Lab assay of single mutants.
Amino acid sequence: HYVEVNGKKIQATSAEEAEKIAKKFAKIYNATVLDLGNYYKVT
């Protein structure tokens, strides 16, 4: 599981952790979290 933010991949140990990381970055960048199955993308 990982999160992609601005083209950078951030490794996460679980889907739950990946979701938390994605939501945190989405809040910082006022962005949207896309759940793409095996990873989250912040756009």
Score class of each variant (00 low, 15 high):
Y2E: 01
Y2N: 00
V5P: 00
V5E: 00
V5T: 02
V5L: 09
V5Y: 10
V5N: 01
N6D: 08
N6H: 10
G7N: 06
G7H: 05
G7A: 04
G7C: 11
G7E: 04
K8G: 06
K8L: 13
K8E: 11
K9T: 10
K9D: 02
I10C: 13
I10W: 09
I10R: 01
I10V: 08
Q11D: 09
Q11A: 13
A12M: 07
A12R: 01
A12G: 03
T13K: 14
T13M: 11
T13D: 13
T13E: 12
S14G: 05
S14L: 03
S14V: 03
S14F: 03
A15G: 07
A15Q: 14
A15P: 10
E16N: 08
E16V: 11
E16D: 10
E16W: 11
E17S: 07
E17A: 10
E17F: 05
A18M: 06
A18E: 00
A18R: 00
A18T: 00
A18F: 02
A18Y: 02
E19Y: 15
E19D: 06
E19A: 13
K20S: 11
K20H: 10
I21M: 10
I21N: 01
I21T: 04
A22K: 01
K23R: 13
K23I: 12
K24H: 15
K24E: 14
F25L: 14
F25I: 13
F25A: 04
A26N: 03
A26D: 03
A26V: 07
K27Q: 14
K27A: 15
K27S: 13
K27I: 13
I28E: 11
Y29Q: 05
Y29P: 07
Y29G: 05
N30M: 07
N30L: 07
A31F: 08
A31P: 00
A31V: 09
T32F: 10
T32I: 14
T32H: 11
V33Y: 11
V33H: 02
V33P: 02
V33M: 06
L34I: 14
D35N: 14
D35P: 07
D35Q: 15
L36H: 07
L36S: 03
L36C: 15
G37A: 04
G37P: 02
G37D: 06
G37N: 05
G37E: 06
N38T: 14
N38L: 09
Y40E: 02
Y40T: 03
Y40F: 14
K41M: 11
K41Q: 11
K41E: 07
V42L: 07
V42P: 04
T43Q: 11
